[in-house]
Design a protein around this nucleic acid. Structure first.
Lengths: 202, 202
DNA sequence: AGGTAACCATACCGGTTGGTATACTCGCAG
DNA sequence: CTGCGAGTATACCAACCGGTATGGTTACCT
């Protein structure tokens, strides 16, 4: 299963395919706006960042922001959508480097640890959900889709839904313990737990 | 270990003792303010709720709020502190009802599921951390302390730090998958994973 | 030549933010 | 009787919020 993950072919599970669907094209000012918004949203939170600051950071104006994206809510949703896109691309590319389901599962936690080494604010999707709640914000479906995608990844890697659920819980727990818990050993402890879950002994 | 958890005695680990330290007393208007703030903060998020709304919901004034708590930040920290206090009291009382470490570990996830059945916005500490970041907000130490306390609980129940880490990761993951992931089966899947972690087979 | 999409600059809008100031009433303890 | 802590009521503050309006300037396409 999953013999090559670098490109889309008939062996790639259908549930994982939306990874490679291209995002809508952006103008140059639009790109700068989305880039600035992404770092600001992630570092300070969605509600804490105003549209004025985003426009100023992007070297453009609020007018352009609303011409391109329509609303702040839509910009937030697009920020999460692009972040999910990049994370999936990065993860699948790394997973394609090794063979065997067990090695791939363990590699997920290596990639996560490295990724979080530079992105110290934890899971952008959990953070956004914490701020937006379960209302009708357009970003909420993006959050749910991201969690469902990770679950499907573990199910696909192992071929066992019970094991996939176990690994997914460890994955989400690692993110929380790393950030809110401020425990730098979380990823290493998670790999130990993964070996137990895989039946490779403690 | 942990023969009785209903009261504080020499067999209760020192790390779990802060549970029973009483919270500072409040005046009548102060109680109403903290009560109103707690439900509003949890349901809508910390940043989304203004002090005007809190004062109005409590049937009092902003003046009284600042006389009692000094600042909104202090009120947020106290909200989390009291919530941690109540959760620990509730959890320890339930754990005292059963015997044996394995039953107690599994019961943690039962209690969590029931608790989350009524509190649908997930972990208040993860949510607050998502909004406040790793800055110098007075609530951040409360969040870290709560995560450390849960980790210590699992370590104490099992007597095995590696197993405690595994169970803690499953615990935090369950909260995320239940809420941001909107997967109602998360707690049941977690109990299956717990049995694997405990070596009781899949 | 003319149209159009993208962009920049600036000003404005009503509403809300955390926090402070002033002045008054009540109950209680010395 | 007096002082004081607690509470109520209202007004105020500068700063910021998301969003809109107006007007002018490029650059490219037909």
């Amino acid at each position: 299963m999953l013999p090559t993950l670098t490109r889309l072919d008939e062996s790639t599970p259908a549930a994982l395919r939306p990874v490679l669907q291209p995002l809508p094209p952006l103008t140059s000012a639009g790109t700068r706006l989305l880039e600035a918004a992404s770092t600001l949203f992630y570092d300070r939170g969605v509600r804490a960042v105003g549209v004025d600051l985003i426009a100023e950071s992007a070297g453009t104006t609020k007018k352009t922001l609303y011409d391109r994206f329509g609303s702040k809510d839509a910009l937030v949703a697009l920020y999460l959508l692009r972040r999910a896109h990049r994370w999936r691309e990065h993860l699948l590319a790394r997973l394609a480097e090794v063979d065997g389901p067990d090695q791939r599962v363990l590699l997920v936690f290596d990639v996560l640890e490295t990724w979080m080494g530079t992105q110290r604010r934890g899971c952008a999707f959990v953070n956004a959900y914490a701020e937006l709640g379960d209302g009708d914000h357009p970003a909420v479906p993006v959050v749910r889709a991201e969690k469902a995608w990770m679950r499907t990844l573990f199910d696909t890697l192992t071929g066992d839904p019970a094991l996939g659920a176990h690994l997914h819980l460890l994955y989400e727990g690692t993110l929380v313990v790393l950030t809110a818990g401020a425990n730098p050993l979380a990823a290493e402890e998670a790999r130990g737990a993964v070996r137990v879950a895989l039946g490779r002994g403690a």
